[in-house]
Design a protein around this nucleic acid. Structure first.
Length: 155
DNA sequence: GCCAACGTTGGC
DNA sequence: GCCAACGTTGGC
């Protein structure tokens, strides 16, 4: 019997992509906490608004770069709230009925080395990760506990 | 509701 | 820079 199964406090895990040219793990390390703004995809929005909980683990992934892969770990510290960037500049968003949401994450640690996308693809235990499914462009995606552990075991 | 055109993502 | 794979938009 699982000790935590009835308590509603099971941790969930996520993978969040960022282009290092736009926002890198080094930047997160300097900032310590950042709001994950600018996501304009409904699936990712729904996860940030409805599913991500304080304390959840986040794999920080560098995309669109020379060596794409997981580079660090962060923690969700603020659950879904309206993305303030939609109210800046373009005045056509309704603050009472926000379309886009974001979460805050806090830097936990950098990995000793990048766990590259190539390695993840070559690890049979990780074949089920959404990340390695063909054509998946979601910037926020769920990670199972088994995949979280198998991936970090590669470090 | 269908579907072509277009824009974006992201690996390579 | 190329291109595959999406998501979104808009005409019909």
């Amino acid at each position: 019997m699982k000790a935590t199964s009835c308590l509603g406090n099971d941790m969930a895990y996520w993978l969040m992509k960022s282009e290092p040219d736009a926002y890198s793990i080094e930047q997160l390390k300097r900032d310590k906490i950042t709001c994950w703004d600018g996501v304009r995809n409904y699936q990712a929005r729904n996860m940030m608004r409805d599913d991500m909980r304080k304390g959840d683990g986040v794999l920080f992934y560098h995309s669109n770069c020379a060596e794409p892969g997981v580079v660090g770990i962060a923690t969700v510290v603020r659950e879904g709230y309206p993305d303030h960037t939609i109210y800046k500049g373009k005045g056509n968003a309704d603050p009472d009925n926000p379309t886009w949401f974001m979460v805050d994450i806090r830097f936990k640690r950098k990995l000793k080395r990048t766990i590259t996308l190539a390695e993840i693809k070559n690890e049979p235990a990780l074949a089920g990760m959404p990340l390695v499914k063909r054509g998946n462009r979601l910037s926020v995606m769920p990670v199972s506990e088994a995949d979280w552990e198998a991936l970090l075991a590669l470090e």
